[in-house]
């Protein structure tokens, strides 16, 4: 896969849809394309975060450790962004992400990601928008869950 293909791919991700092409190309150039075999981990819960990932192809599971063993809490797939919380908040990984199928990702190293966000405000705003949207979703889910518990 060439840099141009990766650039096209980044452009299709909502978070980056509105970022200028030159910046996206730079992001593609400075990130690393990584291929995972099924069952390989991208990162493990509790690790110090060093990068975030964009899924280019394949599926992955998000899992948390529970007293009764690992529990899958979500599945993610193509064009999804993962691992950004750890990088932005500088907290240990809150979950484990593991390849379910053969998986291709774009790995954006932590310092590069932070630099992009701070150097190119458009990118920062877009990421904020996506995160805020995600927060809203979670809040809704929480509200529904609370309502369900009350009944």
């Amino acid at each position: 896969m060439s840099l141009n293909e990766e650039f096209e791919l980044l452009r299709r991700i909502p978070m980056f849809a509105r970022v200028e092409p030159a910046k996206l190309k730079l992001l593609a150039f400075t990130s690393e394309r990584l291929v995972y075999a099924p069952d390989q981990e991208l990162f493990h819960q509790g690790d110090q975060p060093d990068a975030c990932y964009i899924i280019v192809d394949g599926d992955a599971a998000v899992m948390v450790d529970t007293p009764s063993g690992p529990l899958t809490v979500a599945k993610i797939g193509k064009n999804e962004f993962v691992g950004e919380i750890g990088v932005l908040c500088d907290v240990p990984r809150t979950a484990t992400v593991k390849a379910l199928t053969a998986l291709t990702t774009l790995r954006i190293a932590k310092d590069i990601f932070l630099r992009m966000v701070s150097d190119f405000p458009t990118m920062g705003v877009e990421i904020m928008r996506v995160l805020a949207h995600r927060l809203e979703q979670t809040t809704n889910q929480l509200r529904e869950a609370k309502a369900a518990v009350r009944h």
């Binding site: 150039f29 630099r115 150097d119």
Partner: peptide, 20 residues
């Protein structure tokens, strides 16, 4: 061509120059 396109906007001294 590509380098000029990618790095033209970056201020001199930006760490990306060194790295990439």
């Amino acid at each position: 061509d590509t380098m000029v396109e990618l790095f033209a906007d970056l201020p001199a001294g930006h760490p990306f120059f060194e790295q990439f």
